[in-house]
Amino acid sequence: MDAPPLDWGRLLVSQLEFYWDAHLWPRLNGLTDDEYFWEPVPDCWSVRAGDDGRFRADGPATRRTPQPVTTIAWRMMHIAVGCFATRTSTFFAPGDADMFDPAHVPADLPHTAADGLALLHDSYQQWHDHIAALDDEGMRRPLGPKGAYFSADPMAALIVHINRETMHHGGEICLLRDLYGARRGAVIR
């Protein structure tokens, strides 16, 4: 008897769901403002108020080595905005802007841990719901002009990339929480 065909799209969505539900989101419980903006070393990249009072993420994405150390706020906004919100806005909302257009980035990022968590959760939920609704054809469809220099890649390749980014930066957020807690003799679980 032949096995039923594998639903690769469902597998990719399930991977993100499992990481989010079992690993990342539970570890963010109790995040404080102090912890959110904590800089474990000098010259960290974070989310800061500019001269106009609006909060923005420090530094452009660079390929320099070593990469700067970043705060929990920076990493959360990288996931919330750089991964989920930007891709949702690009591929599931009206408009022609490609996924690298700065117009996708909010003019003012969250000023508190609670607001950062709300943005992270909402942007995850929107991305999740859109990718979960894709059928096999939608998973295989090339990104097209909105994908910029990844235009020939299928949506499934973008989902794999976003999953990897979420797990990578999410793991670093969890490590920063552990380091922050260890300063006071408590480890956050």
Rank of each mutant, 00 (worst) to 15 (best):
V187Y: 12
M139N: 02
E39H: 01
C174E: 13
A118Q: 13
G181K: 01
S89I: 06
R75D: 13
M76G: 03
T71N: 08
T70D: 03
R140A: 15
K146P: 14
R75L: 15
L109Q: 02
M99G: 10
Y19L: 11
F37H: 08
G144P: 06
H128N: 10
R56M: 04
A73T: 05
V69I: 13
I131N: 01
P110V: 02
L28H: 01
G50K: 02
D122L: 09
G144F: 04
L6H: 11
L119E: 04
Y149Q: 13
W45V: 00
P4H: 04
G59W: 01
V13Y: 05
Y149A: 08
L143G: 07
V13Q: 01
T86H: 02
G144V: 11
M77D: 07
W74I: 00
R75Y: 05
W20S: 03
H78W: 02
E17S: 13
A182K: 10
C174A: 12
E165R: 06
I173W: 00
D98E: 10
Y124L: 07
G147S: 08
N29V: 12
N163C: 11
F18L: 14
W127S: 06
D135F: 08
A80W: 04
R48Q: 09
D98V: 03
A73C: 04
F55S: 00
P42V: 07
R140M: 12
P94D: 13
D52G: 06
W74L: 00
R184H: 14
E35I: 06
L179H: 09
R177W: 08
P154F: 08
L143S: 05
H23L: 14
M155K: 00
M76K: 00
R140D: 13
G144A: 06
W20N: 07
P5C: 01
G82M: 00
G95V: 09
R10Q: 14
V81L: 00
G185T: 03
L134I: 11
A152G: 12
L117C: 10
R87T: 12
W8F: 15
M77T: 04
R54G: 13
L117V: 12
T112K: 05
F37R: 01
D108N: 14
A107S: 15
L11P: 02
G171R: 04
F91S: 01
L179S: 10
L109A: 04
N163H: 07
V160R: 08
I162V: 15
L31Y: 03
R56N: 04
R177K: 09
R48N: 11
Y149H: 14
H111L: 09
A61W: 12
T71L: 06
A157C: 12
R54C: 15
A182F: 08
H111K: 14
P142G: 10
T70H: 02
T112S: 15
A132W: 02
M1K: 12
F91H: 05
V41T: 12
A22T: 14
H78S: 07
P94G: 11
T166V: 09
F92R: 03
G138D: 10
Y36G: 03
D34C: 07
A49Y: 03
P66W: 06
E17C: 07
H111G: 11
V41H: 05
L175V: 15
V47H: 01
P5K: 01
R184T: 13
A49H: 02
S123E: 11
P42C: 08
G59D: 01
